[in-house]
């Protein structure tokens, strides 16, 4: 059933820019239009392009923030999230935790 909703109305996750827009809703409480505009501006694309698989695959590959299909040595998971936080200019709890764990001075 979730799949039906994803197909009917979802943005497509990492296949497009769904995860990026989701991060803006979660961290900045942005409504959907504002969140899309923000992400489009950061990626340098039009809002309608955010769900364009052909274009977004290229954009994500260039930014190395996880793509579908997967690139064997591309960034995914936590590494991709670190890059996404940087790209979108947001603080993510998981990323901050991860970075603090890498800090040998602590």
């Amino acid at each position: 059933m979730s799949v039906a909703h994803i197909m009917a109305a979802g943005m497509g996750g990492i296949r497009t820019a769904g995860d990026l827009v989701a991060w803006m809703q979660l961290t900045q409480r942005m409504k959907i239009t504002e969140a899309k505009e923000y992400v489009a501006q950061k990626l340098g694309v039009n809002v309608i392009d955010l769900v364009d698989e052909e274009l977004m695959h290229q954009v994500r590959q260039d930014l190395n923030i996880a793509t579908l299909p997967m690139i064997a040595d591309g960034a995914t998971g936590m590494v991709a999230k670190c890059r996404i936080a940087e790209l979108l200019g947001i603080e993510l709890n998981s990323v901050n935790k991860f970075k603090s764990q890498l800090d040998f001075s602590k």
Partner: peptide, 15 residues
Amino acid sequence: RIVAVKPGEEVITTD
């Protein structure tokens, strides 16, 4: 049988 939103009207799914 199935319908979908128009292009550009997609939204985020949480679950």
